[in-house]
């Protein structure tokens, strides 16, 4: 039974190694990154490079300094770097990327025991940390540089005004095409819905992520907004902001999501519900990061109540 403990290591299936899984995740993340560079220009590429480089470097230096086996070749730091970069606005200064990487790799991941032991998603926690610290930098969303891009407020902010009753639905300056190709303001890796869905479907088809989490997550958001603002509002909400990136790539993190199938459905529904709560009832237009982080915190408890435990097993306490 010990193999099923709520514990360390990414919960690998089949004979896949961590390295192969992480490389496939990078591959799946590539379209969104390329789209981000096209949509937001050179600085986006620079930020991605800085994040990946500093994440890998942090992991390397940390493991060397603590005389541990160096595991940067498992590519997990690269994934964290990519996800962190995708969550930065394209005009963020370089040091934001470096500070974020240090937080993600050292404070959130390595200090709690390295890959598989962290209880919160490193990239998301770092993003939230940066967001709370430097909100003006992190919440300035530059417009896309491609021709005919949507300028002004981000889609989520515009939708927020509609929800608040200060704007009308038919006054929105964007349509489904804008949302799908991502020619609007936002953080650099979240705007192009098509690229993210492509990568996400790849991961699901390859069996790397469980479809339950993204599906239950998005379905919950859709249903909640269906009641709140109608079908069009629900679809717009689904395609705007960090929801797709979060649902496919960050909520599905092995170490920070539940182990059982039912646990994952609960996790997805929770993410969706809290995202709805934050997007509608707080001052903030976006709540994807915080919704997933909150469910990360809930995960050990969900596991506790959904894990089948053999009768009479004596639980080990540390």
């Amino acid at each position: 039974m010990s193999n099923f403990a709520v514990t360390s290591s990414p919960h690998l299936r089949k004979n896949a190694t961590t390295q192969r899984i992480m490389m496939e995740v990078c591959l799946a993340l590539a379209p969104a990154g390329i789209a981000g560079i096209i949509l937001f220009g050179f600085n986006a590429a620079l930020l991605i490079a800085i994040c990946v480089a500093s994440c890998v470097l942090c992991e390397f230096v940390w493991q060397k300094a603590n005389k541990q086996q160096v595991t940067v070749s498992d590519w997990s730091a690269v994934v964290t770097g990519l996800l962190l970069a995708y969550n930065l606005p394209s005009n963020a200064p370089w040091w934001i990327a470096v500070v974020g990487s240090v937080i993600a790799i050292i404070l959130v991941k390595q200090m709690f025991g390295g890959i598989g032991s962290n209880f919160m998603n490193p990239a998301l926690t770092a993003r939230a940390f940066l967001f709370i610290s430097w909100s003006t930098i992190m919440a300035s969303y530059p417009a896309s540089i491609v021709p005919d891009a949507v300028t002004g407020a981000t889609p989520l902010n515009a939708l927020k005004n509609v929800l608040a009753g200060t704007a009308a639905m038919d006054g929105l300056k964007f349509d489904y095409v804008d949302l799908l190709i991502g020619s609007h303001g936002g953080v650099l890796g979240e705007t192009c819905a098509i690229a993210i869905i492509l990568g996400g479907l790849y991961l699901i088809i390859r069996g790397i992520v469980d479809w339950r989490i993204p599906l239950s997550f998005m379905a919950t958001v859709f249903v909640c907004f269906l009641f709140k603002g109608g079908a069009e509002m629900a679809l717009y909400q689904l395609l705007s902001g960090g929801l797709l990136l979060g649902a496919f790539f960050m909520a599905t993190d092995y170490a920070t999501s539940p182990i059982t199938g039912i646990g994952r459905v609960i996790f997805g529904i929770g993410c969706g519900f809290f995202l709805f709560l934050i997007r509608v009832f707080t001052d903030s237009a976006e709540g994807c990061s915080f919704a997933i982080l909150f469910m990360n915190v809930m995960t050990p408890m969900i596991d506790r109540f959904t894990m089948p435990r053999p009768f009479g097993e004596v639980k080990k306490h540390g």
């Binding site: 709690f112 025991g113 050990p300 506790r304």
Partner: peptide
């Protein structure tokens, strides 16, 4: 308190550095 207890039970099984 309960959320934190679940997290700490999980962390007890991980390979945290001794000084943590």
């Amino acid at each position: 308190l309960l959320l934190f207890a679940c997290i700490r039970e999980k962390l007890a099984l991980s390979k945290m550095p001794k000084w943590m």
